[in-house]
């Protein structure tokens, strides 16, 4: 039978969808305007009109934003990373201990002072990569759930940070180390990291593999992807970015403490999730996370601006995070229904 001439039935073209980032952006605009209006009513002044407030806000969220970039790719690959905050603490300690000035007589390593800035930075980043890779190895090869593996790292890394100086803070960094977190430098670092990761996720094989594994691990495997090896990479990158955040925090504060970065992991996850990164994997983008990060910042600085009690702030923050996810899930469901 000759079938060459037989037409295959026309399958309808799928409609182009509104990018999810756009709806999140609208949420951001909505929240900002709400604060603006409340500002005029309750405080008699503009919320958005104050550039100083806005730059403080961006600065505040940038450090956690760096972590959120790493966490975004972890969540896209259908994982989770609870260890980021503790890795911040551990790397802050290690980097700072190698960044002290020689004129400070009680330096942690008196023989290792006034080192070039690259030494503490690389040491910190290395620690982050190692912690992340351990997370990844545990998850990929011993098949424990990401939640448990990174929970273990969270506790261990924090313990390490405390043990490192028996709880003592480390201070007096060199000028060049202190420059890393000065002024708006953290914002710049964040933007560079975000831009790189945006390109990586969208235009490189690394990115495609990350989405593929998150969307369907078995399908990724039969497509010839080495799922285990890639998982290790994803967590190592997340560890690297947590370490970078740790270095920035230590530099900015001119001191490192074992408790630094506590609960950053949750804020970072919240930013990603508000930004539309799906906790079931396979979906999300850096743009979304960036918007999620700004929403997060606007909420916090908005509440402070309205002089809301700190306790109320926390409660409301929790509610807003959940509301954002509910809205996202609802949007997804509606879309699937009409598809």
């Amino acid at each position: 039978m000759n079938t060459i001439t037989q037409p295959v039935p026309q399958l309808q073209q799928t409609r182009r969808r509104v990018p999810p980032e756009l709806t999140i952006l609208l949420v951001l605009v909505g929240i900002s305007l709400t604060f603006e209006i409340l500002g005029w009513i309750l405080q008699g002044q503009s919320f958005l009109g104050n550039t100083q407030r806005l730059s403080i806000m961006i600065l505040q969220v940038s450090v956690i934003g760096i972590i959120a970039i790493g966490v975004t790719q972890v969540i896209i690959s259908d994982g989770i990373d609870l260890s980021s905050g503790s890795i911040v603490g551990a790397t802050a300690m290690i980097a700072m201990s190698l960044a002290q000035v020689g004129t400070f007589e009680r330096a942690l390593y008196p023989g290792l002072t006034d080192l070039p800035v690259i030494v503490p930075v690389l040491a910190g980043l290395l620690v982050g990569v190692v912690c992340g890779a351990i997370n990844g190895l545990l998850i990929a090869y011993s098949r424990i759930p990401p939640f448990i593996a990174t929970l273990g790292m969270m506790v261990t890394a924090r313990g390490f940070a405390k043990w490192y100086t028996k709880g003592q803070p480390i201070s007096f960094p060199t000028d060049s180390f202190a420059a890393i977190g000065k002024g708006l430098a953290p914002v710049l670092i964040f933007l560079i990291v975000a831009a790189i990761m945006h390109v990586v996720l969208r235009y490189t094989r690394y990115g495609k593999f990350t989405y593929a594994i998150g969307a369907n691990k078995q399908a990724a495997r039969v497509s010839g992807i080495d799922v285990e090896r890639h998982t290790v990479k994803v967590y190592a990158v997340a560890g690297l970015l947590s370490a970078l955040a740790g270095i920035v925090v230590a530099s900015r504060g001119l001191t490192a403490q074992a408790g630094m970065g506590t609960s950053y992991e949750l804020d970072a996850i919240a930013m990603a999730v508000i930004g539309g990164v799906s906790l079931s994997g396979g979906r999300g983008s850096i743009l979304g996370t960036m918007i999620g990060m700004v929403i997060f910042g606007v909420i916090i600085s908005g509440f402070t601006f309205l002089r809301l009690d700190a306790y109320y702030q926390e409660m409301l923050k929790g509610i807003i995070i959940v509301a954002a996810v509910v809205a996202d899930v609802y949007r997804q469901r509606k879309r699937v229904k009409t598809a």
Partner: peptide, 11 residues
């Protein structure tokens, strides 16, 4: 079927 949801047909 072993396809990756949320990714395009081409991907």
């Amino acid at each position: 079927l072993a396809l990756m949801n949320w990714m395009t047909v081409a991907e």
